[in-house]
Amino acid sequence: MLEITDLIVSYGAIRALHGISLRVDAGAIVTLIGGNGAGKTTTLRSISGMVRPRSGTIRFDGRDITGLPPHEVVGLGLAHSPEGRMVFANLSVLENLHMGAYLQRDKAWIASELEFVFHMFPRLRERAEQAAGTLSGGEQQMLAIGRALMSRPRFLMLDEPSLGIAPLLVKEIFGRLVELNRDRNLPILLVEQNANLALEVSHFGYVLETGRVILSGPAQELRSNPEVRNAYLGG
């Protein structure tokens, strides 16, 4: 479904990705784990068009999307819920969700998806008219995921959905993500600092280190790999 080949990305003189190749198959949850500066976020940013790769290709459903601007990538059905959530704090929760559906024309679909998101995260319905900036971190994360869903994605990318969120809410959010993947057969590319959690919900994982893929395999295998356990799972 998504296939990245030899992706090289630089920020000025600093090379962030040294030729990464990875793939996400239809219906799979794939996670990228690794320390700070490993290139996880940069990989997602390259896919959604926020940064332009120096070389390499990104293919989505066989189509080359390398270097397309973000608003066109969304239109192809790739949604990116970015690091730090980036909800529109000055807009209401409802307006945020409607902005998610910015490219959707089908009013009936928008209404039914809105209902789906509210059902998935009932807290958002309670706070629908509130400014998004007044939500807690966990609620903002729910909103960011809901907003991404409103763009009618065929492929979902999530950057650090557990960061800075109360453990109870993390559990709720990840539970919803697994359901989403299972019920809709929606592929998810997940970047997560909590490697334990990430490998628990994923089918496949890639371990990144300083801009390279150093290890990959089914999530179960990675969890039992001694090196991964030592470096990322706390022994």
Binding site: V74, P82, E95
Partner: peptide, 14 residues
């Protein structure tokens, strides 16, 4: 309004 708050997030919703 969305763009004036965060241009990056605006482009990510299309």
């Amino acid at each position: 309004r969305a763009l004036s708050f965060n241009a990056t997030a605006a482009s990510l919703v299309g």
